[in-house]
Amino acid sequence: QLRFETNGEEQAKKVLEEAKKHNLEAHVTIENGKWVVHVK
């Protein structure tokens, strides 16, 4: 499982879109005010 700390909602959405293009499972959590994308 990969973990990407992003700078906010915009970047998190871009990472999610990329993951979906590659048929990867991804979800976002907010940790300590940071948007974190988890990709399987």
Rank of each mutant, 00 (worst) to 15 (best):
Q1N: 14
Q1R: 10
Q1S: 14
Q1F: 15
Q1L: 14
L2K: 07
L2G: 07
L2M: 13
L2F: 13
L2H: 10
R3I: 10
R3L: 06
R3Y: 06
R3Q: 04
R3K: 07
F4S: 03
F4K: 02
F4P: 01
F4Q: 03
E5G: 03
E5V: 14
E5F: 10
E5A: 05
E5I: 13
E5W: 08
T6F: 15
T6S: 05
T6K: 03
T6H: 04
N7S: 13
N7V: 10
N7T: 13
N7A: 14
N7E: 14
G8F: 12
G8S: 15
G8R: 09
G8M: 10
G8A: 09
E9L: 11
E10F: 09
E10M: 10
E10D: 11
E10H: 08
E10R: 05
E10Q: 09
Q11P: 04
Q11E: 15
Q11H: 12
Q11L: 07
A12S: 05
A12G: 02
A12T: 04
A12W: 04
A12R: 01
K13M: 15
K13P: 00
K13L: 14
K14P: 02
K14S: 09
K14H: 10
K14F: 11
K14E: 10
V15C: 13
V15Q: 05
V15D: 02
V15I: 15
V15Y: 14
L16W: 08
L16K: 02
L16C: 13
L16A: 07
L16E: 04
L16P: 00
L16F: 08
L16Q: 06
L16Y: 10
E17I: 09
E17R: 11
E17S: 10
E17F: 10
E17N: 11
E17G: 06
E17Q: 11
E17H: 08
E17Y: 10
E18F: 15
E18W: 15
E18G: 07
E18M: 15
E18A: 14
E18Q: 13
E18I: 15
E18T: 11
E18K: 11
E18V: 13
A19D: 00
A19R: 01
A19E: 01
A19Y: 11
A19L: 15
A19T: 04
A19S: 04
A19V: 09
A19K: 03
K20A: 13
K20Y: 12
K20E: 08
K20V: 10
K20T: 09
K20M: 12
K20R: 14
K20F: 13
K20L: 14
K21E: 06
K21G: 05
K21Q: 09
K21L: 11
K21S: 09
K21P: 00
H22K: 10
H22R: 11
H22F: 12
H22S: 07
H22G: 05
N23Q: 09
N23W: 07
N23V: 02
N23L: 07
N23K: 10
L24K: 06
L24R: 08
L24A: 05
L24V: 06
E25D: 12
E25T: 11
A26R: 00
A26T: 07
A26L: 03
A26N: 02
A26E: 01
A26W: 05
A26G: 06
A26Q: 01
A26Y: 06
A26P: 02
A26H: 02
H27K: 09
H27I: 12
H27V: 13
H27G: 04
H27F: 15
H27W: 15
H27S: 11
H27P: 00
V28H: 02
V28N: 00
V28P: 01
V28G: 02
V28W: 04
V28T: 04
V28K: 02
T29F: 08
T29G: 03
T29H: 07
T29L: 07
T29C: 11
I30C: 09
I30A: 04
I30M: 11
I30R: 09
I30D: 03
I30Y: 14
I30L: 10
E31L: 06
E31I: 08
E31Y: 05
E31A: 04
E31V: 08
E31T: 05
E31S: 05
N32D: 12
N32K: 06
N32T: 02
N32A: 06
N32W: 03
N32M: 06
N32H: 07
N32Y: 06
N32V: 02
N32I: 01
G33Y: 02
G33E: 04
G33T: 02
G33S: 04
K34T: 09
K34H: 08
W35S: 00
W35L: 03
W35F: 07
W35P: 01
W35H: 04
W35G: 00
V36W: 05
V36H: 02
V36D: 00
V36N: 00
V36E: 01
V36T: 04
V36S: 02
V37L: 02
V37G: 00
V37P: 00
V37A: 02
V37Q: 00
V37R: 00
V37D: 01
V37S: 01
V37F: 00
V37T: 02
H38W: 15
H38Q: 05
H38M: 12
H38E: 05
H38A: 05
H38S: 08
H38T: 15
H38L: 13
H38C: 10
H38R: 07
V39Y: 05
V39D: 02
V39K: 00
V39G: 01
V39I: 15
V39E: 01
V39W: 06
K40M: 15
K40F: 15
K40E: 13
K40I: 14
K40P: 06
K40H: 14
K40G: 14
